[in-house]
Amino acid sequence: MQQLLNTLLGGLTLGMVYAAFALALVMIWRSTRIVNFAQAPMAMVTTFIALSVIDAGHSYWLGFAAALLSGLVLGAVVERVLVRPVEGGPEINAVILTLGLFIVLHALASVIFGNRFRSFPAPFGVRGIEVGDTTIALTTSGVFTILAVLAVMGLLVLLFRFTDIGLRMRAAAHEPEVARLLGVRVGRMLTLGWALASLVGSLAGLLIASGSLVHPSYMDSVVVYGFVAAVLGGLDSPLGAVLGGLLLGLSLSLVSGYVGSQLVALAALGILVVVLLLRPGGLFAPAAARRV
């Protein structure tokens, strides 16, 4: 019983991170129909920026803020400088572009930050919280992870649902031409969308790194899990991405806890295949009511 609880708690923490990462992928997919394979190295670069700030003697939180801010800027720059010119062209161009960016960022990070493992501090304790006289597998850092992802998701919901800029962003994503006719500066909205998605990706990168080791390729497995989570949710649905992330985190944690940790990657792909066979649109795809 206690093992099950601990496995589920671990899965919940991990699932929140996958959810954040999947959400970043979905935000970009919804607005520009591009699967951003460079999401992982972008988050990796911002995590290294945080590490540089922290290693220079500043506080963890200053590094945290620097990473989120540089994520925002990096997302905007990537959209404006690299993605914009290939927009409207064949879709494969944009895919190849993000794959290329993946490689470039990797190489740059190895050159600038060094191709070795470095330890990344945790904001809070990494020891299990004590409940009564047993210690459960939920650390204070884990609680912070869950709260941070929930907070960011809440802010995004508020932004998209209740603000004018959020309404413009949604319009630009769904019907760019109609949005232009209504006075929306679609290009700016796409830039902003990429910036916010990249910020969410950076957050996921930071949370994975906390209390662990970072390396230029430390995020690479997460892009696979994040992508699986996003596809589970239907790629088009932010809520689906979050639920897909949680589901994946819990499933993988159960696999790791009860079957064997070497099977985790295989299990993720197995889940993906089963879902795509049974519900090709993803588990939480909205009803196909468009294009009437």
Binding site: R168, R170, A171, L181, G183, R290, V292
Partner: peptide, 18 residues
């Protein structure tokens, strides 16, 4: 050209935002 994913009121508000 309705934006099918938005509500009726959101579509209208979008027009006014211009």
């Amino acid at each position: 050209g309705v934006i099918a994913e938005l509500t009726v009121e959101e579509n209208l508000r979008l027009g006014g935002l211009a």
